[in-house]
Write a protein that binds this DNA or RNA. Structure first.
Lengths: 147, 147
DNA sequence: TTCTTCGGCCTTGGTGAATTGCATATGGAC
DNA sequence: GTCCATATGCAATTCACCAAGGCCGAAGAA
């Protein structure tokens, strides 16, 4: 798997909202410009996120999007799955019947484990965490690690 | 990322060789039939694996392929990378310059971590391990977990 | 009513995966 | 030395999906 543009853009867009606070309604045009994302594409992605209950949309003048929940209650995995659907390294993981060999396939076992390790990272971090990381990375060069 | 057929077939093929022992020369036709893999496709995959020093090829009558090293010296990651090249969740991980935002991108940090967790699993297991797992899974129903 | 913004649908171009085919090189068997 | 099985290399095909853009309709605030 590679991350798709949709996931990349979607995360950026959601982080933009999380950074501004839960209740500030923000139009696509602003996010699109600020994060350099094709507006129509972002619109499509945000539709999925609205339907999944992660975002709330507001139509009409001064409309836009807000987070539907506090940033601390939304994990990175929530966002990614809302965009792409459940992530699996192979088809045989969610659907063992897709391969005749599944029952005795050692590789499948290994892939299940690998997938778990990967997803753990996405479950463990909420949007709040990521926004905090982002702020601390861009703002203060408080210390020089290597003078 | 999804695992590709090439990776899937390549692993199956290599495991077939590992299961037979390091020095038994086996032609594509046998592997292809035993594991239900398109022969020409497997040929292409095995070319990469030969060039990477994981397999050794033997031409002519009674030719075929063998492992170039003992199964305990080849990790799952070795095989996968020989087939697909280095695995990365996004382009910006190996090549930070591909995105202007890389230096202060929190998502990138998260992805680096996730990728590490994933690859750890593949580095930790050798072909020998996987063959052992495979044997213990298919052969003896020594105990019934749920009578 | 009017203007702004999201919603849904349809189209397009591009890229890469997954094969298949054909011609060539190699080396063991006889 | 000839022959045949086998790998090697290159080309072409098919198909699906990603990425993006366009158009028009629906909703809602001013």
């Amino acid at each position: 798997m590679q991350f798709t543009k949709a996931e990349e853009y979607g995360m950026q867009g959601v982080l933009h909202l999380a950074d501004k606070g839960k209740d500030e309604v923000t139009p696509l045009s602003e996010i699109s410009e600020a994060r350099d994302i094709p507006e129509k594409f972002l619109a499509k992605i945000f539709q999925s996120l609205s339907r999944s209950g992660i975002l709330r949309s507001h139509r009409g003048v001064r409309g836009g999007f807000t987070l539907a929940k506090p940033p601390g209650d939304i994990t990175v995995k929530d966002v990614l799955e809302a965009i792409q659907g459940p992530y699996h390294l192979t088809k045989c993981i969610p659907d063992p019947d897709s391969c005749a060999r599944s029952a005795s396939c050692a590789m499948r076992e290994l892939l299940v484990t690998a997938e778990e390790r990967l997803l753990e990272v996405f479950v463990k971090h909420t949007l709040e965490d990521v926004v905090h990381m982002e702020r601390s990375m861009s703002a203060p060069p408080s210390e020089k690690p290597n003078p």
